[in-house]
Amino acid sequence: MILVTQSIAVIEAGQGTNGAYVACPSYSSYNYCWFRDGTFIAVAMDRWQKHESARRFYDWATALVVARADGIERCLENVAQGRPLNPADLLHTRYTLDGRQGDEDWPNFQLDGFGTLLWGLQHHMQLTDPPTMPSVWARAANLLVRYLAALWQRPNSDCWEEFSDQIAVSTLAALYAGLHAISAAFEANGQDATLALDTARQIKAFLLGSGVRDGHLIKQIEGEDVVDASLLWASVPFQEHSFLQPSDPVMQATVARIEQDLVGKTGGVHRYAKDTFYGGGEWVLLTALLGEYYTATGNLTGGQRCLAFVEASANEQGHLPEQVSRAPLHPEYVEHWLGCWGPVACPLLWSHAAYLSLSAQVRESGL
């Protein structure tokens, strides 16, 4: 429980007064709040009964979306008229803690975080009795559903902020989960869920038709026969809103390929085989995510092994890094990134959140 307590403390210290979670306070490129990271952090805090912290994040995120409603409407109008998109109208993927867009050149057209946010909103609302959707949340959710319905078939950067000319299968898995989840929230609040449900169904059909190769999911739509550890999103942590259930044969085959190709020499999980970022180390949050999958399938040994890897990755201060480089896939790139950006980001709040979520799942399962 020591690392659980420390993880909660790290997250609380990294939350701004307005509710935004900084990705990493000591790593300049990560002095922002991403919708993706922030939602996974908020969900973890909810799982450990830190509901006020989670609510403050969702208040911040939904207010930010609503504040950019004019740009979203212009974007949707351009799509409807068949005109090119104006990058200035697209929702950015990350913001400073006070809600400003970053000035640096950054791959801002990323959609997965908006699906994740929709799922997180519904997850949090389930904890209230009765489940209520504040007006700002409702307006933001409707804007995001329309935005995703219009744009989901367009290439965009994946969750690693790479391959902007492709469509990542894990991105669509996150969008399916978010749209499916928010449709349940809409129905519970007497709102029209038709667009969310229809878009989710379209995404699922597209994934099954173009995102599967030889019985398993692949990294990119109609891409090479390779996997990415983010494909775990097809099943966990979205649970009942997942595109695939843990026992689905396609999911089982996908995890088997991840185990074969991406579980590293020291037991952690790499992102993908050609990853050269800091040499392509083993990622703490992905190892925890694999542990969630194992736990969901009743694999006690696998879940505990992943939990032990994460705990062993903490430094003397109890801080978890983004990745560990004890056995990188491409060691020749380690020094390059150390020279560019310094040491690996630590503490990474998403890593701490992934640990909290796995710890909660282990506890709840009685394993």
Rank of each mutant, 00 (worst) to 15 (best):
D105S: 15
P246N: 03
S164H: 06
A149L: 05
E292C: 11
P237I: 00
A88P: 08
S7H: 05
D248Q: 10
L148N: 00
G99H: 13
A88G: 12
G223K: 11
V145C: 05
Y333L: 09
P131H: 07
C75W: 01
T297D: 00
A345K: 01
D105M: 13
R257T: 09
L300K: 15
Y272G: 05
I11C: 09
Q323E: 13
V226M: 08
Q245R: 13
E282R: 07
G16N: 12
S26N: 15
T132N: 08
G211E: 10
A360K: 11
T96C: 11
H92A: 15
Q15V: 01
P155Y: 10
R56Y: 10
G223Y: 10
A327E: 14
P87H: 09
A177K: 03
S53E: 12
L356W: 00
Q110H: 03
A141Q: 06
Y147F: 14
F35G: 00
W337I: 04
E162A: 12
F57G: 01
R271T: 03
A345D: 03
P155F: 09
R74S: 03
G120H: 02
Q126Y: 08
G209F: 11
A184C: 14
I203S: 04
A69H: 09
C159Q: 12
N78W: 02
L195H: 07
Q317M: 13
L91E: 12
Q260K: 15
D228S: 07
W106A: 05
P237L: 01
F243L: 14
Q317P: 08
L349C: 07
E224L: 14
K265P: 10
W350S: 01
E240I: 10
A229M: 06
Q110T: 04
D198L: 06
S325K: 09
P347E: 02
G280M: 11
C346K: 15
V269D: 11
L117I: 11
F186M: 03
S242W: 02
P237H: 01
V212R: 02
Q323K: 07
E335I: 04
H352N: 10
D59F: 05
L286K: 01
G113K: 05
L127S: 08
S183P: 09
P328R: 04
P107D: 10
S28Q: 10
K274C: 13
A141D: 10
I2W: 13
A88D: 15
D98H: 14
P134L: 05
C159W: 01
H123K: 05
L320T: 02
W283A: 01
L76Y: 08
V169W: 00
A229S: 15
F238T: 03
R94P: 00
L175H: 06
N156C: 15
A185E: 08
D105N: 14
W60A: 00
A20C: 14
R326A: 13
Y27C: 12
W341K: 12
V284K: 02
D103H: 15
G71I: 06
V334R: 11
Q191D: 09
L85R: 04
T62L: 06
L175I: 05
H216L: 11
Q239W: 03
L231M: 06
R47Y: 02
A173F: 12
S170A: 15
K204T: 02
